[in-house]
């Protein structure tokens, strides 16, 4: 290995120590869901927001709140409802009748970890306010701009089966989430463990084992992780295959309305680095890209009416792309 990359690898192994502690701590509450927990850490390390989708009861909210509890960081949960207003999230200026002055009341968004529960239940203007804050990392209340705390991570959940009374997120706003995670049911063994753990009358608790400085240091190392030109080309090929599938021998052009945006390339790169970090590696391999690819691309590829008619999802399209594009 190249000496510089070897040095990065050493730093990765040092700085990723906390990940093990964090995973162990979360594991005290969450049974299984390795995929979900790992992706939460990737979001944390790559400084990217996450959208979680899954039927109710799969511990999405519990996983996020447990992660927040294991970090010595602020955590706020926002339950999105149809009557929610932007000011309920970002804050507002209130008039103090006693001294006749105005003071700013910061909203719950001023926290390190935000759980935006059932984000698609709030109307567009509220979603928009949150998503703008996610992108800009700052909020303007009245005439004053307030920076959001660092680290700042939004974990939004949405329920796929409750279509009544929901406001689907526009594509441009969904694109701002680095990963979209589809949370699945636990296995039989995990289900049994969940049942045992949650029926003893005592809810397990976690203690804060990581502080925000650890996260920030780790983020710096993540950005330094080496990514070879071959892997970079592989990422670009994957993204281009979603835009021009015929050039890669894929017969899925009719199934795609819009391919992945350049954000996909950026987030594939960052998320792959974070994945390599979790594996204790100082460099990215195609395996990192493949592992994280589905979560980065599934909400960035818009399927056509033909695909919907044939019940072909974007997940299926992404899998076909990864199967077809040659791994370096």
């Amino acid at each position: 290995m190249h000496p510089e990359i070897e040095a990065i690898q050493d730093r990765v192994q040092t700085e990723s120590e906390f990940c093990r502690k964090l995973i162990d701590e979360i594991g005290k509450v969450i049974v299984g869901q390795t995929y979900l927990v790992e992706r939460l850490l990737i979001g944390l390390l790559a400084d990217g927001h996450l959208l979680l989708e899954g039927v109710p009861g799969l511990a999405k909210t519990l996983a996020v709140s447990t992660l927040a509890a294991a970090l010595q960081a602020g955590f706020r949960r926002l339950q999105f409802t149809p009557d929610l207003l932007p000011a309920d999230i970002i804050g507002t200026v209130i008039y103090n009748a006693g001294d006749g002055t105005f003071s700013t009341k910061k909203g719950p968004i001023f926290s390190n970890i935000i759980l935006a529960d059932e984000i698609n239940r709030a109307p567009a203007k509220v979603q928009s306010a949150l998503l703008e804050a996610m992108q800009e990392r700052q909020v303007t209340i009245s005439d004053t701009t307030h920076l959001l705390p660092v680290p700042f991570l939004v974990l939004a959940t949405q329920n796929p089966i409750e279509q009544e009374g929901t406001y689907p997120l526009p594509e441009a706003q969904v694109d701002r989430f680095m990963l979209k995670l589809v949370v699945d049911y636990p296995s039989k063994v995990e289900e049994r463990k969940i049942m045992d753990r949650m029926t003893v009358g005592k809810t397990p608790t976690v203690k804060a084992v990581v502080n925000p400085e650890d996260i920030l240091r780790a983020r710096k190392v993540v950005t330094e992780i080496y990514i070879d030109d071959k892997v970079k080309d592989y990422i670009v090929d994957i993204v281009f295959a979603s835009r021009n599938p015929e050039a890669y021998g894929l017969d899925i052009k009719d199934l795609i309305s819009y391919g992945a945006s350049p954000r996909a390339s950026i987030y594939l790169n960052l998320a792959a680095k974070a994945h390599a970090f979790l594996r204790g590696r100082g460099f990215v391999t195609p395996e990192d890209v493949k592992s994280i690819g589905l979560d980065v691309l599934r909400h960035r590829i818009l399927v056509s009416y033909e695909a919907e008619a044939e019940e072909i999802t974007s997940d299926e399209i992404v899998r076909r792309i990864f199967d077809q594009v040659e791994v370096p």
């Binding site: 290995m1 190249h2 990359i5 080496y226 070879d228 460099f283 195609p286 395996e287």
Partner: peptide
């Protein structure tokens, strides 16, 4: 193999 191929190794 991957360590050498993608680790910029020689």
């Amino acid at each position: 193999c991957h360590n050498v191929r993608f680790g910029g190794g020689q």
